[in-house]
Every structure is written in C-alpha cells, then in structure tokens.
Computed example of a mutant assay.
Amino acid sequence: MAILPIVKYPDKRLKTKSQKVWEFDENLHALLDDMYETMIATNGIGLAAIQVAKPICALIITLPREDGEQYEEDRLEIINPTLINATGASLYQEGCLSVPGFYEEIERFAEVSVAYQNRFGEEKVLKADGLLAIAIQHEMDHLNGVLFVDKLPLLRRKKFEKELKRIQKEQKSSQTN
C-alpha cells in the first residue's frame, strides 16, 4: 500500500466529473487500499478517487468511533453511488483534504439512502444519517466535480478566496526564506 498525493484546490482536476467503474479487479482493490492509507495518514474521514487524481466513481469513508479512533473494519467503500432518497436538513462544519485548513458550515440532507457497488461489484443499499450522511454527500459531490466551497454563499465564497490567497502567499514566502 502507498500514500498517494492529494490534489489540492484550485487544481482543475477537482472539477472533473468522474467516470463509472466497470472493472472490479485487483487494480481497483489496490487503489481503494491506497486511498484508505492516504486518508488515514492525512487525518481524513472520507476520500474520493478524484482527490488522488483518479477520475472514477469510487470513494471511501471511515468514521471515528467513540474513542476517536478509525478502524479498518469500519471502512466503507462506495463505488458508482446513486442517491435514491434524501430527507431533512442538517448544518455541519465541513473541511476537505483538498482544501486544507478551511472549514465552513454547509447545509446537507439529514438522511440519505444510496445505492452503490462494493469492491467486488456487488450491489448494496446504505441508509445513513448524522455524520455518515454528511460524509457521503461531501464525497459524492467530489465525484461530480463539486467542492464544499462551491456551496458557499457569495460573500463567504469571496472570504474563502481571499483567505486562500493569503495562505498561498505565506507558503510562497516561507519557501523562499
């Protein structure tokens, strides 16, 4: 297994619409395993394949348990997801491995049902609420080329862009010193 580089905003690849997975083979399994290692190494709870420069409809999620730890047996691998039901509304302060250091409150559905395939191509349905529902929606957005910052109201989006420019400027000046 390997830790993969994460594509960072404003890289245009993050706007790519991911393609359906047709081959459920050892290459897909290796990618899913590498994605898991990458997500854990970067303290994430979810990761879409596009975030590691693979434009396919695959994502992983591993929520921490009450002890704050993430366990591999809790890993969800969701391939070719389709939202089949969504109800309610929930506000949650989201962050993203592709937009490090920036967090904003985003409104999402409170409960979702998703049809998907597992790593072997078997069809499944998952009903989720709470943080799991939020994470699924966040990662599914990535598969459609949508970032959580795209959902911000105009004024908050401008604040984000300004903050991002400041951070990038600081990073450049620290690299030249």
Rank of each mutant, 00 (worst) to 15 (best):
Val7Pro: 09
Lys8Glu: 11
Tyr9Trp: 07
Pro10Tyr: 08
Pro10Asp: 11
Asp11Cys: 02
Lys12Trp: 13
Arg13Gln: 13
Lys15Leu: 15
Lys17Asp: 10
Gln19Trp: 01
Gln19Ser: 05
Lys20Ala: 11
Val21Glu: 04
Trp22Ser: 03
Trp22Lys: 03
Glu23Tyr: 00
Ala30Ser: 10
Leu31Ile: 08
Asp33Met: 02
Asp34Lys: 01
Asp34Cys: 02
Tyr36Gln: 04
Tyr36Val: 00
Asn43Gly: 13
Asn43Ala: 09
Gly44Leu: 01
Gly44Lys: 05
Ile45Met: 05
Ile45Leu: 10
Gly46Phe: 07
Ala48Ser: 14
Ala48Gln: 07
Ala49Asn: 11
Ile50Cys: 06
Gln51Arg: 09
Val52His: 07
Ala53Ser: 15
Lys54His: 15
Pro55Met: 07
Ala58Tyr: 06
Ala58Ser: 08
Thr62Phe: 00
Thr62Gly: 04
Arg65Asp: 09
Glu66Arg: 14
Asp67Val: 06
Gly68Leu: 15
Glu69Tyr: 02
Tyr71Met: 07
Glu77Cys: 05
Glu77Ala: 11
Ile78Met: 12
Ile79Tyr: 01
Ile79Leu: 04
Asn80Trp: 00
Thr82Leu: 12
Thr82Pro: 03
Ile84Glu: 10
Ile84Ala: 00
Ile84Val: 15
Asn85Ala: 15
Ala89Met: 13
Ser90Phe: 04
Leu91Ala: 07
Tyr92Asp: 07
Glu94Ala: 12
Gly95Lys: 10
Leu97Gly: 08
Leu97Ser: 07
Val99Arg: 04
Tyr103Pro: 00
Glu105His: 06
Glu107Val: 02
Arg108Gln: 05
Phe109Asn: 15
Ala110Ser: 12
Ala110His: 01
Glu111His: 14
Val112Phe: 10
Ser113Pro: 13
Ser113Cys: 14
Ala115Ile: 14
Tyr116Trp: 13
Gln117Trp: 00
Arg119Ile: 04
Arg119Lys: 08
Gly121Arg: 01
Glu122Gln: 09
Glu123Tyr: 15
Lys124Cys: 10
Lys124His: 12
Leu126Met: 10
Leu126Asn: 05
Leu126Ser: 02
Ala128Trp: 08
Gly130Leu: 00
Ile134Gly: 06
Ala135Asn: 08
Ile136Val: 12
Gln137Ile: 14
His138Val: 12
His138Pro: 03
Glu139Arg: 05
Met140Asn: 15
Gly145Glu: 01
Leu147Lys: 11
Phe148Cys: 12
Phe148Thr: 06
Val149Asn: 13
Val149Leu: 08
Lys151Gln: 13
Lys151Gly: 01
Leu152Arg: 08
Leu155Ile: 07
Arg157Pro: 03
Lys159Gly: 01
Phe160Pro: 07
Lys162Trp: 14
Glu163Asn: 04
Lys172His: 08
Gln175Met: 14
Gln175Val: 15
Gln175Ser: 13
Thr176Lys: 14
